[in-house]
Amino acid sequence: MGPTSAPHGTPCLRIGGAVRAPRALAMAELRALPQHACDVVFSCRRAGARHHRFAGPLLLDVVGEADPVFAGGDRKARLRFLLSLRADDGHRAVLSWGEIDPEFGAVPVLVALSRDGRPLDVEGPTLAVPGDRCGARSLTALRELTLRPDA
């Protein structure tokens, strides 16, 4: 499936797995969440350093909309969970929950809705991971998030 336009009312990002309320969020719903910005530098082998500013909701808040269930209950139980992410073009990446949790790794990973001030309405949301060296986890047209325990 190729890139598709994501009009305001069209669900574009599915959230499932270990959640109480699986959701499909449209761009407008993602835009209504608290918005953040982050600067990312991609050190590309061929093109050199590329600087971008991404803006959108925190991945943490996006997953929070589906009400995650962390079996085990205590704070450290969250460290056993991971997020499996899939883009429209088939690219996949996995993040550990501990990376994005402010009580642990505290990396403000964004589900970016704009890049350098340009809305990503046509492409769909992009995963923006500050600190990634070459942007390999910057999945374009993010379509699916699944929260899973480690085993």
Partner: peptide, 13 residues
């Protein structure tokens, strides 16, 4: 602060 949307700007050093 939860209603804030950042200005639509590109990266500036």
């Amino acid at each position: 602060t939860r209603a804030h949307r950042p200005a639509p700007t590109a990266y500036t050093p």
